[in-house]
Design a protein around this nucleic acid. Sequence first.
DNA 1: GTAATCCTTGACGTCGGCGTCAAGGCAAGG
DNA 2: CCTTGCCTTGACGCCGACGTCAAGGATTAC
Lengths: 135, 135
Amino acid sequence: MRIGELAERAGTTTRALRYYESRGLLPARRAVNGYRTYDEDDLRLLQQIRTLQDFGFDLEETRPFVDCLRAGHPAGDSCPASLEVYRRKLAELDVLIGQLDAVRTQVGAQLARAELEAQAELPGGPEPRCELTDN
Amino acid sequence: MRIGELAERAGTTTRALRYYESRGLLPARRAVNGYRTYDEDDLRLLQQIRTLQDFGFDLEETRPFVDCLRAGHPAGDSCPASLEVYRRKLAELDVLIGQLDAVRTQVGAQLARAELEAQAELPGGPEPRCELTDN
DNA sequence: GTAATCCTTGACGTCGGCGTCAAGGCAAGG
DNA sequence: CCTTGCCTTGACGCCGACGTCAAGGATTAC
């Protein structure tokens, strides 16, 4: 199949495929007329790439998986190098999620505080804090 | 004070300050010789910007806070526009953290599965799955 | 033959927030 | 006077993963 069909079947674009090839990730055979030619195996490699991309993996991080498949293994993650990428990614995710949780907490606290202060300002001077003050 | 001192006191660079000015975020007065001149208020504005940046806010998102301070309010988040930014950011964070959690779960599962399969491959053919098979 | 639809390579644009020169002006110490 | 160390503007570089356009060749449909 040619580049357009592969792109469509994988849900990506021809531009992306040419980019992958320029990075040495998904080289293509060439027909006599110079057109790129792909087969079903290439589709599988491409699907592996796209799956990992959707998970937020960098393009370079997908390379071990692609190499693994190309080496004849049943799955892209059947090789130690791929597992290492998984582990690194998990560690990165844990750090990132932790940071974002911390930020979320901080921003949430800031918002709560600022809303309280705004509340205290608006209704024409400081309000009574408690009914007991009426006594 | 001049740009170098302000940058140092705020823990940033002169390049960043010039960039903020180019974005209209932190304009500077000028001395007779053309040098940028800042005061303590500018330092406060800059600190507000940096705090939010550290939280992952875009520069544009810091603008309401800076405007709020410049309008004479005691805090950058004393204005409704700032609160809106807080709320939007919280919503964005929730979505992002949710996505990252989902990815973490998926990647974790993939890793566990791939490790199991690798385990089953290595020790020379499929291993006995259970001691009961010895009977 | 010609229009439509593929394909090719090459090259510049995008986005954010600056980093990093380059070329030159201004002020102060020795 | 000269050096040193600030400052000025301007402009290109960076990163990742492509988008988009340009100019032209190939194939197929009619």
